[in-house]
Design a binder for these strands. Structure first.
Lengths: 336, 336
DNA sequence: TTGAAAGCGATACCAG
DNA sequence: CTGGTATCGCTTTCAA
């Protein structure tokens, strides 16, 4: 310890942490200490500090996987924010395996994380530790929750297609394990009903495979085609499946958007690069990560016993119109 | 502490850690301790343990960013391996900013990570701490290094195009800040010379912008087009830029692969999702992550003073042929 | 305005 | 075979 240069470690600690008691120390001494710290290249040992203070300035992050797209974008927002606040991140990918989820609670506890953020994860309700979830619609009452307004999303999506004159719209549902699948589907049902759009079994296909590729979307679209294929537009669960669906349509001799308009979801980077560029419902993924991290920081700073209640933070989707959708072929001039 | 149930914390520690001294403890007592631990749901505090033992069982990971596929794949391999070994990961994304790199050394030291892994990063030589780099060809002598065989990569790429009858092949060079840019370029020069392929200035464009999107590739391809555009094939620095280049070519009225074949690099998930699916030089990214993590674990387990010397681990690329390349239009029947 | 000393929760050395 | 106890590096209360 650097007290070889003057005074005792108590004062040093006070100054280096800008603790309230430090105001009672003369400027001159403060400067001396700071300089010595720089000279000795002093690095406080976070482990010791955490052990003593009970604050590890680290948060656990639970995520299905890190392939590109969805999770990566959210993660980037989280990392950026946490890192700027001096917090470390302990990340665990669970691949939707229940056993990993169980174990993660233990790991987080052992490492004494101050809080946890769970992304697209069916959380088994962690202890009394501050928790924030992203895209987990049916999370427990005591955790704060960042979710997309799925009702609004379904609304802008279907209204867009409806306004273009489309009346027979096929839907690709998400996989059963994705936490957003059900909420989104119910929102679609509601909006479809209000617009008078049919949602017959032949117009709906659910993805099944747990692959991070566009394959599930490709196969779902094939099933849709085999079930009659009588639709002029298709609303996919996400961009990746939309791209798979487009490939399936092209392979079946239907062109996009001439024969069928395709609407994606998420607005991952690929959506704008792909040709035809994808019209899509944008989720502010990066921003959701930032919000989650900020919520966590707020809870942690508020102290363990503050009655900062859990919030429900709803973010708005936004329609990004590109070239994969267009007016329905056989449509009369449509009402704006 | 659980010593309320029998004996002292010393023995407990011994048993719970399976320390050598534990063999001298009767089975019966061991069982009693283990059961009590389970009953009390005892979680050892890693912070305290680390403070005492000087081992934090955590490693720092330095990465440019996560949104782009490349890093995400490597990261997945790292996370999986580390996690299975009970190690935590402290990740920092640096966006190629020197200032962040400097700071990260400090952060890693403060958190007392046992080792660091740097991916695609120009490392400022961290202290005496075990270090492994991935894709940093000119790393320092004391760090072990996971690199792709770039010579072989250039060979299989250009030979593929050459065999398809292409003679005028455009190249998109990587950004100056990417650690692989120069090695790769020299490999391409060498192979091009041996195959008798021209590499005139008009056939080469270097990306400049530091964006994790396909924009730099798009712009580079535009420059190539403006510089004459007399080529039947294009070899891009990576898949993301290949995808951007394809968009540029399409926008300029050239079709892919009919008018020009495009060859990517990396084989990120996007490569197979994109239409046309990308022919690409596959880097075993996930595997490289696993190798890096294993190397780190080996070094850490070997102890700080072992003379385990730094290695150079070279992995092999592999050509993945999809639909973005095809035989040259005006080519005579090509020699296999 | 500054110092001494008591821990935080474990590990490891040295006795018994 | 098992129990004390010093110690890891820091924060913080209490005295001086």
């Amino acid at each position: 310890m650097s007290e070889h240069l003057g005074l005792s470690m108590a004062s040093i600690s006070r100054v280096l942490n800008g603790s309230p008691a430090a105001q009672a120390i003369p400027k001159a001494t403060q400067a001396r200490i700071l300089e010595a710290a720089r000279e000795f290249n002093y690095r406080p040992n976070q482990l010791a500090r955490s052990l003593r203070s009970g604050q590890s300035t680290s948060v656990g992050v639970l995520i299905p996987e890190i392939s590109e797209g969805y999770a990566a974008a959210v993660l980037a927002g989280i990392e950026e924010t946490l890192s700027a606040a001096g917090y470390a991140m302990m990340m665990i990918t669970h691949h939707h395996r229940a056993e990993v989820l169980e174990r993660s609670e233990r790991l987080f506890a052992e490492r004494a994380v101050d809080a946890v953020i769970a992304v697209d994860t069916a959380l088994p309700l962690f202890g009394p530790i501050p928790t924030v979830t992203v895209s987990c619609p049916d999370a427990h009452p005591y955790v704060t929750n960042i979710v997309l307004d799925n009702d609004r999303a379904a609304e802008i999506a279907l209204q867009h297609l409806h306004a273009l004159g489309h009346r027979r719209i096929a839907i690709i549902k998400g996989q059963p394990f994705s936490s957003e699948t059900e909420v989104r589907w119910r929102a679609i049902e509601r909006v479809a009903a209000s617009l008078g759009l049919p949602l017959t079994p032949g117009l709906v296909a659910q993805m099944e495979e747990d692959l991070p590729s566009s394959e599930p979307g490709y196969r779902a679209a094939c099933r849709l085609l085999k079930q009659g294929g009588d639709f002029s537009a298709l609303f996919a669960f996400n961009d990746v499946s939309a791209i798979g669906a487009i490939a399936a349509l092209l392979d079946a001799g239907r062109s996009v958007p001439e024969d069928v308009s395709v609407l994606g979801f998420d607005d991952i980077a690929l959506a704008s690069i792909h040709r035809p560029a994808l019209t899509t419902v944008r989720q502010p993924l990066h921003h959701m990560g930032v919000l989650a991290a900020n919520a966590v920081l707020e809870m942690v700073n508020a102290g363990p016993d503050s009655k900062l209640s859990a919030q429900q933070i709803v973010v708005a989707p936004e329609l990004v119109i590109r070239s994969s959708t267009r007016a329905c072929h056989g449509a009369e001039s449509s009402p704006a």
